[in-house]
Design a protein around this nucleic acid. Structure first.
Lengths: 208, 208
DNA sequence: TCATCCAGTTAACAACTGTTCTCTGTTATT
DNA sequence: AATAACAGAGAACAGTTGTTAACTGGATGA
């Protein structure tokens, strides 16, 4: 259908991305509900009114940020769960993946953790919807595992949510330890590994 | 030392409490980092400058709110963990306690969930410090249990943090379901119960 | 009783906010 | 080549913000 991007639409998307980037930087030290429209345009280097060409409000911008942040997370979730190998190896890989993602996109992770329970309803709901999708994907991956034999659908979804929540908690811990020395990050890794291990043990003996 | 409260100090604490109450109401629809000083004084019905007699800034007010909110939570944590009875009975009791607390102090719970990763550093740190204390208390209770035999200190603390985080997640779920019909709240109860059950199973087989 | 304290008031400040309307200059369409 | 579309600029608006200084009047303590 649409073939040529058009130098016009290209510029627009470039500016739009500049808004998203600038907002993400500003949101490192405040919440979305206190992010001002003028503040963002000032950071981008553009007139305040230009904002309306891209977003209806800062809440709208927030929803766009949710898509960007959790879109980039989607591949990670899939590989995290479906990695082959024995249980212990999976856990190590999963935690490495989480740590790597936090290193690569700290502002995204911070934004999600902050706005998940934040003061802007549409953003909260957008995050919630994405996390539900994640849980369903994780559930689908779990169902493929021979260990899932005899598990009810509800129990699988319950476990999936547990994993998703645990993933966010771990990511948030890595985030707090971003500027800390290496041994602190090691400590977080080991804590997260043992928590995942305990959940794995519970999973293995669930049907007893 | 101090015997008479003094009609003066009494009035002051009354006004201070009015600030905390008003702020808690305003924070139901926004985050602390967007809470204005004038907004609060207007809600209390007092001059803007009166604010400075009680707090240095809204961040300062936030820290006071953390103490109030988590102070009221302390008794709950203790009884939640130390309740007698078999594992299944404990879980049911614990979830009832959480649900009851959310019903009784929804604004407190919302505030903690929101500001735990919120945009105001001193408040984040105050919450973090309190949650660490909770985890240590839970650890102490867990250590009393005969089931804790053979557990390392680190593993006990790891499990304690898992319980504390799970408690917050559950509270937050109940909060979201506050206005929902009874069967939705039932669904949350059962989900939370099964997650706690899985952790219990993992705990029981940890030393295998 | 009298001097001191101090919670809360009043007035004013410069700076900032979101939103509207009008205009410009380049790109896209015919 | 003429027309329309449209991203962004500019100016102005009524309100809001945090903070300062000087003041008031009832409680406090000698």
């Amino acid at each position: 259908m649409s073939h040529t991007v058009g130098i016009r639409q290209a510029q627009k998307q470039k500016t739009r991305q500049a808004f998203l980037d600038a907002a993400l930087v500003l949101l490192e030290e405040q919440s979305l509900s206190s992010l001002g429209l003028r503040e963002v345009t000032r950071a981008v280097g553009v007139a305040p009114t230009a904002f309306y060409r891209h977003f209806r409000s800062t809440a709208d911008l927030g929803v766009a940020l949710v898509d960007e942040a959790l879109g980039s997370l989607h591949p990670m979730v899939r590989t995290t769960v479906s990695t082959a190998g024995d249980s212990e190896e999976r856990i190590t890989r999963a935690i490495e993946l989480i740590a790597g993602h936090v290193d690569a996109h700290p502002a995204h992770v911070r934004f999600i953790a902050r706005e998940r329970h934040g003061g802007v309803q549409p953003v909260r709901e957008a995050i919630r919807a994405q996390l539900v999708r994640f849980a369903e994907e994780v559930k689908a991956e779990l169902a493929k595992d021979p260990q899932a034999e005899g598990w009810s659908e509800d129990d699988l979804l319950m476990l999936a949510h547990l994993y998703v929540d645990q993933m966010l908690i771990t990511a948030s811990l890595f985030l707090e330890a971003l500027e800390s020395p290496e041994d602190e990050r090691e400590r977080v890794s080991r804590l997260a590994a043992r928590q995942l291990r305990l959940i794995s043990v519970g999973r293995r003996h669930w049907l007893d």
